[in-house]
């Protein structure tokens, strides 16, 4: 198989790095499932998180983890008494477990947000919604990533 420029550069870069600094610092630490749990508890507190209401629309297989389209929507009437206060999105294996916090209010009309995210590895993405009665609802999606983001070298 012919070597592409990208492969050559990443190989050459790896050799340079390995030659100058200890191998333990080669890759930043990945967020672990424990870090994911901590990050979620920082937002949610100790209360229960129920499954349902939240819909996470994200491709199950992505070729390029640098830009992955994602839409989170929550089944809510969005009235003054019953609305979504915030949506929090987390990942399992990026160097940092947070992706974004999005704050809504009754005048949002529809509890739905879209953005584009980075995924460093094949992993789980968790979206949690906080409703106006302070209950938390979550959904989880598994995504297969073939080209990782975040930690690649700068050429």
């Amino acid at each position: 198989m012919p070597t592409t420029r990208r492969q050559f550069l990443s190989f050459a870069g790896g050799v340079t790095v390995a030659g100058t600094i200890p191998i333990v610092t080669l890759r930043p630490v990945e967020a672990t499932p424990a870090m994911l749990t901590t990050a979620i508890r920082n937002v949610v507190g100790e209360g229960p998180i129920r499954t349902g209401k939240v819909k996470l629309n994200i491709p199950p297989l992505v070729e390029n983890g640098n830009t992955v389209p994602m839409t989170v929507s929550v089944a809510s009437p969005m009235t003054a008494d019953d609305y979504v206060k915030s949506i929090h999105v987390f990942n399992e294996k990026n160097p940092q477990p947070n992706i974004g916090n999005f704050y809504l209010n009754p005048s949002s009309g529809r509890a739905q947000i879209s953005t584009r995210i980075r995924l460093a590895d094949t992993q789980k993405v968790v979206a949690i919604a906080r409703l106006s009665d302070d209950s938390f609802w979550q959904v989880t999606a598994d995504i297969v990533v073939t080209l990782a983001a975040c930690t690649e070298e700068v050429n």
């Binding site: 160097p95 974004g100 584009r116």
Partner: peptide, 19 residues
Amino acid sequence: IFRADLFPAIAANPYLSFF
């Protein structure tokens, strides 16, 4: 009417859509 905290896991040239 809308606010977001962004982290490094948001892709370059941040896109956001809301209602």
